[in-house]
């Protein structure tokens, strides 16, 4: 009798364990989930936030520094498990290429819009009051002349590997601008920083959400609105004979991707990943904590998490109960 009692006790215990809410997590592998870190603050903090969420679920997490373009190959191969910031404009091409090769799955979009386009700091507007319209910008082209560009204005585009097509746009809209490619984001900031010293008008490539908003106030240039296919069909946009004759989509996506095995190896972690959806203000806040308040990314992440339990806990709970 005694022994039977004991047996039932064990059985009930086991049953209780099996159906305990937290236990679904136990199905996830104990191998570390590898989260890539790039070289801009919002992505680093967001990665740390998500990493700490996983850790709170009892999972192992590791971070690895990678190039933001080459990372898609790594996601495909499973060297990193996920990627939290896929910008439509900057990484859309790499993302689509890797998706087509296989090995990577889409984990949904953030509730954030990204915008990447020609941009100017506010002091530029004083010299060229017609802004932000692109026609007005074109008329002020003289303001942006430099020794090297002769009688044309100078527009500083993003690095070539971001595939921004500024050159094509200037040609398609017959703008009086020479397009120069910066080599890196840092080069863009250096250019704005140098112009700030004597409030020289500049027009450069920029995007949002981004720490630069906090440092330099500015606006995007308003180009003819994006139409689907503007990059494939010459008929779209004002110039019937050219591609890229529209502004970039003002509401680009920001999405998450994962290695395809994540769905089976860490099912609840993947479930949480697909629930995750940060908004523009949240992302800006994360970036600010590092860029302006000078917190370490890990500290910034835990501080942000503490203040936003109400946002993140439901994402976790939805997958563990």
């Amino acid at each position: 009798m005694k022994s039977i009692n004991k047996l039932t006790k064990i059985l009930t215990m086991a049953g209780a364990l099996a159906f305990a809410p937290g236990l679904a997590v136990a199905e996830d592998s104990s191998d570390p989930i590898i989260i890539p870190i790039h070289n801009w603050s919002s992505q680093i903090v967001m990665s740390n936030v998500v990493g700490q969420m996983y850790e709170s679920m009892g999972l192992n997490v590791e971070y690895v520094t990678t190039d933001s373009q080459a990372v898609y190959e790594s996601v495909r191969l499973g060297d990193v498990t996920l990627e939290l910031e896929v910008w439509e404009g900057a990484f859309g091409a790499s993302y689509r290429a890797a998706l087509a090769k296989g090995g990577m799955v889409d984990a949904g979009e953030h509730n954030a819009i990204t915008r990447e386009d020609w941009w100017y700091p506010l002091w530029t507007k004083e010299a060229c009051p017609g802004l932000p319209s692109w026609e007005a910008l074109n008329e002020c082209a003289d303001l942006f002349r430099t020794a090297e560009t002769g009688d044309k204005g100078r527009y500083l585009d993003g690095p070539v590997d971001w595939l921004k097509h500024g050159q094509e746009r200037a040609e398609a809209l017959d703008m009086n601008f020479t397009v120069i490619n910066a080599g890196s984001a840092a080069a863009l900031w250096a250019e704005i920083g140098a112009a700030e010293a004597n409030k020289r008008p500049v027009v450069v490539f920029n995007w949002t959400p981004n720490f630069a908003e906090a440092v330099w106030e500015g606006e995007f240039v308003e180009f003819p609105t994006w139409e689907d296919g503007c990059d494939k069909d010459p008929a779209k946009g004002p110039n019937p004979n050219a591609l890229y004759d529209c502004g970039n989509p003002a509401t680009g996506y920001l999405r998450k991707v994962a290695h395809h095995e994540m769905t089976t190896k860490w099912p609840s972690a993947y479930c949480v990943l697909s629930n995750i959806s940060f908004t523009n203000p949240q992302i800006a806040e994360m970036a600010k904590m590092v860029d302006v308040d000078e917190l370490e990314p890990e500290e910034a992440a835990s501080k942000w998490l503490k203040g936003n339990k109400g946002v993140t806990q439901p994402w976790i709970d939805a997958c563990t109960t």
Binding site: D67, Q69, A93, S94, A97, V160, D161, A182
Partner: peptide, 21 residues
């Protein structure tokens, strides 16, 4: 390396190849 400043030479094109692997 100077491609990070912004060039129009082999380096710039190499930088572009990183995007699409």
């Amino acid at each position: 390396i100077a491609a990070f400043i912004g060039t129009r030479d082999l380096g710039q094109e190499m930088q572009r190849t990183l995007a699409g692997t």
